[in-house]
Design a protein around this nucleic acid. Structure first.
Lengths: 145, 145
DNA sequence: TATTGTTATACTCTATAACTATA
DNA sequence: TATAGTTATAGAGTATAACAATA
């Protein structure tokens, strides 16, 4: 039982609340995904490959904001698990595709993600809900650095 | 120059966009703070101590969601830098206060944060701007786990 | 010359377990 | 018995530099 309530002066800062909201949501999603032995980044990768079969490793890294160097062990882990396979497109590029196992796993993962996203949105009052995605996209501002 | 545009299937997911927006904003803030040799968490700590002088180390960790074990080197670094000081409140609790140097640094840091927050909000269309904080607070949902 | 994948490495952040000394 | 601080350690995630092979 907390003794004295402490005022948090950071709650007025959208940037701070953005970070805390993101961290909380991410932790929650990872917990939900744990029973599939997946992390949020794994599912993002699977969804991207399903959407763009044959996408190259570097293209995928670019979309997901994962650097080339970090893609190597990441992709290797998923390949070693048998959920994706690499295919030589030319002699330096690797095309990525889901395996049957990957597609089956993605079906289950997508349900978990959908439940998570629904839970997130449900916290927002009905009136504000349509503004969630537009506001987050605007805050992201992924063009201008 | 990108060859073929790749559709990102994750852009419809608030949770994903939340994460990307947070990561981008955080990187930007840390860049802005670099000239003061500060990280975002440092400023959060300074602002919290200024708001609640004498807050204990464990209370601060609780508010900032930093675990006790991780508070130790964190606080030690700031203390070693002379921006905060620890004071024994009883024989197990440490009260934290800003030093003069800490207060002076915070004045400058606050300006950087304010510029950052303003830049964030400016990306959001006027009509949506008043909903930013309410929506982020709702998404955070810091009560229910 | 620029790009792709790769290796190696380092740094930050976060998480866990165990210990001590206090309240 | 629960709490505050500490130590040690491990794991993510991310960042940089350099290299080979190829477009």
């Amino acid at each position: 039982m907390p003794r004295a309530r402490i005022k948090d002066p950071l709650l007025k800062l959208p940037g701070y609340v953005l970070r805390r909201a993101s961290a909380a949501a991410l932790a929650e999603l990872n917990q939900r995904l744990a029973r599939l032995d997946l992390r949020h980044a794994d599912v993002a990768m699977l969804m991207l490959i399903e959407s763009s079969p044959g996408i190259t490793q570097s293209q995928a890294g670019h979309v997901l904001a994962i650097q080339r160097a970090n893609m190597v062990p990441f992709v290797a882990r998923l390949e070693g698990r048998g959920v994706l396979q690499r295919r030589q497109v030319d002699r330096r590029s690797q095309a990525l595709d889901l395996t049957r196992r990957g597609r089956m796993l993605l079906v289950r993962a997508r349900r978990v993600v959908a439940a998570h996203e629904a839970a997130l949105l449900k916290r927002v009052p009905d009136r504000l809900r349509p503004m969630v995605l537009p506001i987050l996209m605007a805050l992201w501002n992924r063009d201008r650095p």
